[in-house]
Design a protein around this nucleic acid. Structure first.
Length: 108
DNA sequence: TCTTTGACGATTT
DNA sequence: TAAATCGCCAAAG
């Protein structure tokens, strides 16, 4: 069951649930997800969970960017473009340097 | 135990 | 604004 999400412990599942709650067309950050899930300071762990996330999951991983409002993959990499396209498809715009406008953030 | 590793974050230059 | 630096913390070997 939980294996379908690539995680086993409850903490990871809570974090994944938090990510799943990000509304369509909006984005959040690794740090905010960790904080909202009840694990402040574990931004890097959020990244690790997403890294081992199987493609079969329906977790909106692409709605998670870094605190600088940028996609956390090297610009030009396949992964970068994949996330870029998914976000564009949801109506999210990018500025020239790959920056995402504050309009699309849901932090408190 | 110690060291390395990350789809990170905040601060400083 | 961009790049370098340091801090952070759990997982894996």
């Amino acid at each position: 069951m939980s294996a379908a999400f690539g995680s086993e412990n409850s903490r990871d599942l809570i974090i994944l649930t938090t990510i799943a709650a990000i509304p369509m067309g909006q984005v959040s950050t690794y740090g905010d997800i960790a904080k909202q899930a009840g694990y402040p300071g574990l931004a890097r762990h959020v990244a690790k969970i997403l890294a081992k996330l199987p493609s079969s999951s329906n977790i909106p991983w692409h709605r998670v960017v870094n605190s600088q409002r940028r996609i956390s993959f090297p610009k030009g990499s396949p992964a970068y473009f994949q996330q870029y396209k998914l976000l564009l498809k949801e109506g999210i715009e990018f500025q020239q340097s790959g920056l995402i406008p504050r309009t699309f953030f849901l932090p408190c």
